[in-house]
Write a protein that binds this DNA or RNA. Structure first.
Length: 471
DNA sequence: TAGCATTTGTG
DNA sequence: ACAAATGCT
């Protein structure tokens, strides 16, 4: 009586555009939707855990409405799946693919082991517009540079349309003894702003996309780099857990493009950012070692500084560079950081403090709501210049100029650094110059710090280091 | 193969 | 204007 199918949720916490779930629903079998807390997965941080708990709760409710119950487990997926197929007499397991090294290896082992025992394992693409193995350059290998990669993607057939949400699932009335209840993931007190502007879950994701199209898309190309402007999509945490898919975003944007009057430029620019996400997954799939190793091996000789004190000051937003500190404090309090500021804070850690990008990557991973196994790694390597498009001094951001350029009113900076609320704009990004004036900045013990490193000195030191590792 | 591209800063 | 290296066609 093999008439049930196990649906394994991972990073696809939605019902719509979910090919594996649709496949399960259409099989006619009873569906057992499960989520497994895998102890071998890279541990996620507090904010991300909170998000996942919220999202899983919503998912469970949505599944209930269409007739199925979401079950939770903790342990090695292979063992759990093996036991569950036995318990439920399931002859099939379905899931949507992941692309990082650990997941690929794990899923492959599961597929092999269980297929040998007569369990059919089917996987689907639910989180990318283009499968990484389908995009190749003229010499037949994977792209290492974004622009030609995305150009090639755009030359491919348009991505598939989103799959419809299943309207009814045949549930299963039995329960098994392995189940656990969904662990709660509370937030600490200093993360007070995290819950303010987010609604995790599929409904929240779709609302966020609507909101972005209404309020952000038109000004996206012009203002996406201004952290005080509501011009970015803020879809990253939803994309992280698959509460919305790139296909859904793509299709919605195509619809809007043909029905409303957005400029070609702003739409192209936004879709290219979805493209950067695709590119990150493409890279991590083809070069899984990049999670811990420099893409460019010459970087293995880079003279990184070991400086725990500076690393800590960076983490706490106490470097003395207002825009860097504002970004790091935004991250600490909200679990989010604006994209432009991510590049600036990352650049500061790597170039100004000469601290290994992996230390920064880990901290972002631990703190970000949207910490993504592909984007976080690729983003840090991009800033480090340890990838194929290395261009070191193209990417030593001047934190003072960046502030003046992208936070010209100082609203973003002052929001997260109240100590600087009364500094006049011309000194906001170099407040040490205002010291002699009576501008009301407290530089005393516990007040706003002096720069922990001088910009010009740091820039030259970094350039020398890059010179050292040149072949 | 030579030209193009490449989320910038400095003088 | 110039600071460089690499991938790509």
């Amino acid at each position: 009586m093999s008439n049930s199918v196990i649906y394994w949720f991972r990073q696809d916490l939605r019902l719509e555009d979910n090919p594996a779930l649709l496949h399960a629903a259409q099989s006619g079998k009873s569906v057992i939707p499960i989520f497994i807390f895998d102890p071998d997965d890279r541990p996620i941080g507090m904010a991300a855990s909170w998000w996942r708990e919220q999202s899983l709760t919503k998912l469970g409710q949505a599944l209930k409405k269409i007739g199925a119950t979401l079950n939770f487990y903790e342990g090695r997926p292979l063992e759990i799946l093996q036991k569950l197929t036995g318990f439920y007499g399931a002859d099939e397991i379905v899931w949507n693919r992941q692309y990082d090294g650990y997941s690929v290896a794990r899923d492959k082992e599961i597929k092999q082991t269980l297929s040998d025992k007569g369990i059919q394992c089917s996987s689907f693409n639910a989180s990318l517009l283009f499968e990484p193995w389908l995009i190749k350059n003229k010499s037949g290998s994977h792209f290492k540079v974004f622009s030609p990669f995305w150009r090639q993607c755009m030359a491919e057939n348009a991505p598939e349309s989103p799959f419809p949400r299943p309207t009814k699932l045949r549930g299963h009335s039995d329960t098994d003894p392995l189940q656990i209840s969904l662990p709660t993931a509370p937030l600490s007190d200093d993360a007070d702003l995290i819950t303010e502007e987010w609604t995790p879950g599929e409904t929240g994701a779709n609302r966020q996309l609507e909101k972005f199209i209404e309020e952000g898309l038109a000004i996206y190309a012009e203002f996406r780099d201004f952290p005080d402007r509501p011009a970015t999509s803020r879809l990253s945490p939803y994309l992280r857990w698959g509460e919305i898919s790139p296909r859904q975003i793509w299709s919605k944007i195509q619809f809007v493009k043909s029905h409303e009057s957005f400029s070609e430029k702003t739409i192209t620019k936004f879709l290219a950012e979805i493209g950067w996400r695709e590119f990150s997954y493409h890279l991590i799939f083809h070069v899984p070692e990049m999670a811990t190793q420099n893409l460019q091996s010459s970087f293995n000789d880079f003279p990184w500084e070991r400086n725990e004190e500076a690393l800590q000051q960076w983490k706490e937003g106490k470097t003395g560079y207002p825009l860097v500190d504002a970004g790091m404090r935004e991250l600490r309090r909200t679990g989010y950081m604006h994209n432009r500021v991510r590049m600036i804070t990352a650049s500061f850690l790597i170039k100004h403090l000469m601290i290994d990008w992996r230390a920064g990557e880990k901290y972002f991973w631990d703190r970000l709501l949207d910490a993504c196994p592909a984007n976080n790694i690729a983003g840090w390597q991009w800033v480090a210049g340890s990838g194929a498009d290395a261009a070191p001094f193209f990417r030593i951001f001047n934190p003072i100029i960046q502030g003046e350029k992208f936070d010209p009113q100082g609203a973003y900076t002052k929001r997260f650094i109240p100590e600087l609320a009364h500094v006049e704009q011309k000194h906001l990004f170099s407040p040490w110059k205002a010291k002699s004036d009576t501008v009301g900045v407290d530089f005393q013990e516990g007040g706003y710090p002096d720069p922990i490193v001088e910009h010009e000195y740091a820039r030259n030191r970094a350039l020398d280091a890059f010179q050292q590792i040149r072949r």
